[in-house]
């Protein structure tokens, strides 16, 4: 609901600004993510949440309590969390007998669930177990998706989309070349394993313009397998991927720039009626009053509007009688 379309107006200017910030924007910033635990969680799940939270910082929020949420049965509480914290992404960790070491990653559109994927943590080594210097916080990473499986099924395609959305951070116009520090690679193996690896990028001298890339693993090192998924309906996905009309580039017609940098414009003129052009006025070319009346009659006859003529003559007659 738009701020100005509210029945109850915001009382303070500050409150109004808060509401305005939460309204849909034409250009959206980074999607924030919330991390929370389900009914129960294991140590492994908690550490995975913490590590991915660290990777996602500063666009992330960790909720500390356990939540009685069964997200595939009822997603309303999660929608409420995301609405409250104004987040578009969430990651939930839970642990049960049926689904041990469980992670659910998903995203929201218009404060309701768009899609989500449930992952099982098979193997985990944390950020802290790699005793190397880490990367700068909030940096845009390079994302790698290895393996032919990413394009072969709907679930994997959706998971890929979710992972890109989760880690790509912000859409930027330009990057500093020396500032590329981080690479996250996702490997989809034929046996159904999905391996997340995170590396620090070291740019070495190569003797040519491009640098030689060396990588150093900084963790976390997680192996997932896919469990349940909830894919969005194509209509909803299409609606969500809609680009605002304001951002579309409109082509300027009939304007060109030549090699010297001069702008040329082409203007379309209507067809000119040469008969009606006013040329130089001369007394000798002036029409007599008879000629003028004849011309008028001719014009009227051509237009076929006889009624006008008749009406005019009648009115003239009546006025003369008066």
């Amino acid at each position: 609901m738009s701020v100005l379309q509210r029945v109850v107006k915001p009382t303070t200017h500050k409150g109004k600004k808060v509401l305005l910030r939460k309204e849909p924007q034409i250009i959206e910033g980074t999607k924030r993510a919330i991390f929370f635990k389900g009914r129960k969680s294991s140590e492994k799940v908690r550490r995975v949440l913490r590590d991915i939270f660290d990777l996602k910082k500063p666009d992330a929020q960790m909720l500390s309590r356990n939540n009685d949420v069964t997200i595939f049965e009822n997603a309303t509480p999660v929608e409420a969390f995301c609405r409250k914290h104004d987040c578009g992404l969430f990651m939930m960790g839970s642990h049960s007998k049926k689904r041990p070491d469980n992670i659910v990653v998903g995203r929201m559109f218009n404060h309701s669930l768009l899609d989500m994927v449930e992952l099982n943590i098979d193997n985990y080594e944390g950020l802290r177990e790699f005793a190397v210097s880490k990367i700068t916080i909030g940096i845009k990473p390079c994302l790698l998706f290895n393996g032919p499986h990413w394009e072969q099924s709907d679930e994997y395609r959706q998971l890929k989309s979710i992972l890109i959305d989760f880690f790509h951070r912000e859409q930027v116009d330009a990057v500093r070349l020396q500032g590329i520090e981080h690479t996250i690679s996702f490997n989809a193996l034929p046996d159904g394993k999905i391996c997340l690896r995170s590396y620090k990028v070291l740019l070495k001298k190569s003797g040519v313009r491009e640098p030689r890339v060396e990588l150093e693993e900084i963790g976390p090192r997680i192996n997932f397998t896919l469990r349940r998924t909830k894919l969005p309906s194509p209509d909803l996905m299409k609606e969500a991927c809609k680009k605002p009309g304001e951002l579309k580039v409109h082509k300027k017609k009939n304007i060109s720039t030549d090699s010297l940098g001069t702008t040329h414009g082409r203007i379309h003129m209507g067809k000119q009626d040469i008969q009606k052009i006013q040329t130089r006025k001369m007394k000798g070319l002036k029409k007599t009053s008879e000629e003028r009346i004849a011309l008028k009659r001719k014009v009227l006859r051509e237009s076929g509007d006889v009624s006008v003529k008749r009406r005019r003559s009648v009115s003239r007659g009546s006025s003369s009688s008066n």
């Binding site: 849909p24 890109i164 500093r176 009309g245």
Partner: peptide
């Protein structure tokens, strides 16, 4: 040294509908 990036090709969903 900054490098100008082309517009992204992957279509990602928005968080909220177009205003």
């Amino acid at each position: 040294v900054m490098v100008k990036l082309p517009p992204p090709k992957t279509a990602l969903p928005r968080m909220k509908p177009v205003p």
